[in-house]
Design a protein around this nucleic acid. Structure first.
Lengths: 210, 210
DNA sequence: AAAACCACTATACCTGGGTATAAAAGCCAT
DNA sequence: ATGGCTTTTATACCCAGGTATAGTGGTTTT
């Protein structure tokens, strides 16, 4: 069953204040083999622990006590990068533009064709899987990087910026051999087989821009 | 006047089949100090030579003999990355979504507030300036790269992928010294002061992914 | 107090990258 | 066909990176 670990069941979250909508979406999703979790309020949704599987959120724009667009922004500000598909019964063009500008995957006005929603979900789940894959790679990298001592991190930054060991030694007031050793330990801990690989890691870690 | 070279007058292109719209937009744009160029048909617009200055296109969705959305796609397929702002008198939500998904900067339904259009234009021009800046950098890089001989390009690809000179020599059936010389010439022509810089160039050239 | 870790240094040695000089062979264009 | 460019190789030399071994001194944890 280990092989299924990377291909876990995706989850589709539904946040809508109308019970009828929740029920119909829920059964639609289940009918195509998708795991659905429905919520009536923002507070309810906030309590859920997002599983580390490809997922997306189907969000009603007009909730009882909140605005779906604002809620989407809040999620983003909290670093929740869940792909969002908006649905609404009372949409207009400015609202649509605002939703799409803020990065929604799709925006569907009721009544919509079931297939359009399913297509949007497929796109959203694919996008999320991509995000999870990218994240897990850079998580691993960040873990390696944070396992470095301060000095080693310093040396890595300076090395990838193109400085010679000698220049690093001068700037840090160290002897050449000390830099060499920090650098060697750093390469081991980063599991970089060569300098080119280290440069790519530094790129992914955002060490080249800062 | 040389100093003004990088801060040239932006141009706003307007493509709309209604003369009244063209005129009113044109005068609005001029009133805020923007250079406007108006077109009535797709054919007319195609003949214009896009100046290398920050610019954007205000595009009516429903043209007399064409569809604005389709035209936008066509431009993109031809590599024209001009930011587009759609305006329309007969818009609906699916159309809006389609436009935004295909990368439009904004989508405005008539009647719209003048300020909304001006805001959209400011965003679009900023985006285009960014694009021009990025492009000019990689243009220079591509020029350097294309000035390399085939061998030198080969060696560069292999070097940035992390191979040792020895490994490159084996794979290309060359002697070590030959590789060293190609590599040295390549570094000179690329104007890379060190290997880290070369790696960054390779990244910008898209040599790491392929 | 001992163990563990970090930072630093030194000597010595090895490998890899880079240059200068020199030279041979092929291609191409004026 | 002669000069220019590319490609190839060689010898010799230098410098930068990297490792092993060994030792000092500091902090923190147990």
């Amino acid at each position: 069953m280990k092989s299924a670990a990377s291909a876990k069941q995706p989850i589709v979250y539904v946040l809508d204040d109308e019970p009828a909508v929740r029920d119909s979406l829920s059964s639609l999703l289940r009918s195509v083999g998708l795991q659905a979790e429905v919520f009536a309020t923002v507070a309810e949704f906030r309590q859920v622990h997002l599983a580390p599987v490809p997922s997306c959120l189907i969000l009603d724009v007009r909730l009882q006590f909140a605005n779906g667009l604002d809620f989407h922004r809040q999620l983003q500000e909290q670093g929740v990068e869940l792909p969002v598909i908006f649905i609404t019964g009372h949409g207009d063009i400015p609202m649509t533009v605002k939703a799409m500008k803020s990065g929604a995957v799709d925006f569907l006005a009721k009544p919509f064709r079931e297939q359009d929603l399913l297509d949007a979900i497929a796109t959203a789940l694919q996008k999320d899987q991509q995000r999870l894959a990218t994240n897990s790679v850079s998580d691993e990298l960040r873990h390696c990087f944070s396992s470095l001592t301060n000095r080693e991190q310093q040396v890595m930054r300076m090395a990838v910026s193109g400085l010679l060991n000698k220049q690093i030694a001068d700037q840090l007031n160290l002897s050449l051999i000390t830099v060499k050793i920090h650098r060697g330990n750093m390469m081991k801990k980063m599991q970089a087989k060569n300098f080119a690989e280290l440069m790519r890691m530094a790129g992914q870690l955002g060490l080249s821009k800062s």
